[in-house]
Design a protein around this nucleic acid. Structure first.
Length: 349
DNA sequence: AAATCGGGGAG
DNA sequence: CTCCCAGATTT
């Protein structure tokens, strides 16, 4: 905390005790760097000053504001919890750790953060920064991504929590982890904890914390159908549950097990005769945590009316309206290339 | 307990 | 490329 007083960090959500604002910031910052999340925080607080504003917003509007931030279940759960607080709790934010924990999308970390920052309750946060600081300082080699590890670090964090000022303490240890005890090449020479740091003593700083699991990524090949009708509108649909990007929109999608050339694609997809293939885009690559997406966009034109050729849930939008709809990043990259550079008429690459 | 869910920035 | 980020939920 002494170090923290000398290394303050001005952040837009630190100047309030409003639990709604704090909750909003914490959800946005889950697995997200401060620099990446800050613009989203500003956009959300401007669009939805109160929990009622958020609760009463259409889902598509919430998703649109979240567009590009990733982990979209956060946005859906945020909206669900806002409606719960607004309608079931009369807009009164829950004020105990256990009741905060009941909110959709709020786990142990976020409940502790809200409880301490908004209500000064003695609950220790354990985020990626805290795992790193504690594992190094105490020289703990228990993997942090196991149930045993989570329990160990949660108990330790609770033991060393400053119960007189849990809000400042939580803020301090997270800041210390993000600024001094950084993941790579920490400058231990200017660390105030060096003399008591077990990892420094054992020369294991770079090895801690330990993670046991390694992620494996699988390749997926997406072929989106860019289908115009006679009015110059494009078919889109909303992605459902059970896969990535739930709640976002896309062009009608055909997925293949492996990459194919244009002729084989047309053959394999068995496109209806009413559709004439105009062109196919380059491959857009998007790396996610557990998969790599290779996306191509096949531009087709409807030669005659055939409403049911695409999925029945398709809706038609003018290209100029796409900017107000939430798409995955890889789709937006194509949209920018296709419509901002080449214009809005079909077939013109 | 393990798998899954995005996107970006640092090294 | 790999790793990690103010983690949570589902399987």
């Amino acid at each position: 905390m002494s170090w923290y007083r000398q290394h303050p960090r001005v952040l837009p959500w630190k100047s309030t005790k409003d639990p709604y604002i704090i909750w909003l910031s914490e959800i946005i910052l889950q697995q997200t760097r401060v620099a990446q999340g800050t613009p989203y925080f500003l956009a959300f607080t401007k669009a939805f000053p109160s929990v009622h504003d958020l609760a009463n917003a259409p889902q598509d509007e919430v998703m649109r504001l979240w567009e590009g931030l990733g982990y979209y279940s956060r946005a859906r759960n945020l909206h669900t919890a806002a409606k719960y607080i607004s309608r079931e709790l009369d807009g009164v934010f829950p004020d105990t750790y256990q009741t905060i924990l009941k909110l959709k999308g709020v786990g142990p970390y976020t409940a502790a953060a809200i409880a301490s920052f908004a209500y000064d309750l003695p609950h220790a946060v354990v985020d990626g920064n805290v795992y790193r600081v504690l594992s190094r300082y105490f020289g703990i080699e228990t993997p942090i991504d196991t149930s045993t590890g989570k329990k160990t670090f949660a108990e330790l964090a609770d033991q060393i929590l400053d119960r007189e000022d849990p809000a400042s303490y939580n803020q301090a240890i997270m800041n210390f982890g993000s600024m001094q005890c950084v993941p790579k090449n920490p400058d231990c020479g200017k660390c105030p904890l060096q003399s008591a740091c077990r990892a420094f003593e054992m020369q294991k700083v770079t090895q801690l914390p330990i993670k046991s699991k390694k992620i494996k990524r699988k390749d997926r090949y997406f072929y989106f159908l860019l289908c115009f009708n006679e009015a110059g509108e494009i078919a889109i649909n909303r992605r459902g549950a059970g896969d990535i990007w739930q709640g976002l929109y896309q062009f009608p999608l055909f997925e293949l097990e492996q990459a194919m050339n244009l002729e084989d694609i047309v053959e394999t997809l068995k496109l209806p005769k009413e559709l004439e293939v105009l062109s196919i885009s380059k491959t857009y690559k998007q790396i996610l945590t557990h998969q790599t997406i290779y996306a191509r966009f096949i531009e087709v034109e409807q030669k005659q009316k055939s409403p049911e050729i695409l999925s029945s849930d398709a809706v038609w939008k003018l290209p100029s309206a796409l900017v107000d709809i939430a798409f995955p990043k890889v789709v937006n990259r194509f949209i920018e290339d296709r419509f901002d550079a080449a214009g809005y008429s079909p077939g013109l690459f």
